[in-house]
Write a protein that binds this DNA or RNA. Sequence first.
DNA 1: GGGCAGGTCCGCA
DNA 2: TGCGGACCTGCC
Length: 294
Amino acid sequence: MKICEMKNGIALENVKDFELPHIFECGQCFRWNKEEDGSYTGVAFGKVINLKKEGNNVFIDNTYYDEFIDIWYDYFDLKRDYGIIKKQLANLDETMAASVKFGHGIRILKQDEWETLISFIISANNRIPMIKKAIEALSINYGDYIGEYRGSKYYSFPKPEALYNLDVGNIQFSGIGFRGKYIISAAKLVTQGEIDIYGLKNLSTEEARIKLMKFPGVGPKVSDCIMFFSMDKDDAFPIDIWVKRVMEYFYVPEGTSLKKIQGFAQSKFGNIAGFAQQYLFYYARELKIGRKKR
DNA sequence: GGGCAGGTCCGCA
DNA sequence: TGCGGACCTGCC
């Protein structure tokens, strides 16, 4: 891959394993939206950027070289060779081979810990369009105004300090529902220094999971999402309804407990379980594998 | 209109 | 420990 400076942006030439729909629609993030021209615009770390792909080149607009190196290179996990991971997984069995082929351009974004915590608290028993709406409402109301980009206004994700002294009634936006009280509790725990959200990545997966589950609204699934999507815990294996379905469809008997599925996944996928989960999730959800007919 | 959605919490054996 | 039911809310 070659990095080239451009007017108001940069170009990545000869990028491998980088498909915009795979990255932004595999369920790991909620603040990226597809534009009419097929490009994606999103907000992360208080910045707005737009990505467009032509051939094997990716164009990132509204940034500059130093910012790209500081923020986006890591955010898009560009130091990692996904070819190695995909090969390892595809060699396991036909299901993994098909999943990896289907989502071949997935990359795991290195997201902000706090934003990921709140986003996945909101995700519990919710729908993706609703989750996106809720996060957008929180940002518009309690985030900072970033600026206008291509005719739309953008806001950063609110800091914990902006939420901790709110009343539950203040954040009853569409899609928040019963999760409002969890969000405020989380903001309090972080602001008051009871849980060092940005220090958890230095702990082991098991220790970080225990700490994360101290947040109300955070159970095993949400904690694994937070660890994998923002704390480099590649052995985390979040089991949601789709992963449960695809695991039951291909690997374990129907009705297997989540704990047993978790154990099965750990022994099968080991320290790259998170990646396996993401390819399986995208595969299952896009193809609606295992979903019962109504 | 009842059921369901990227689960978690709570009460009960 | 492990299980079933409740849960905001919008959409089918």
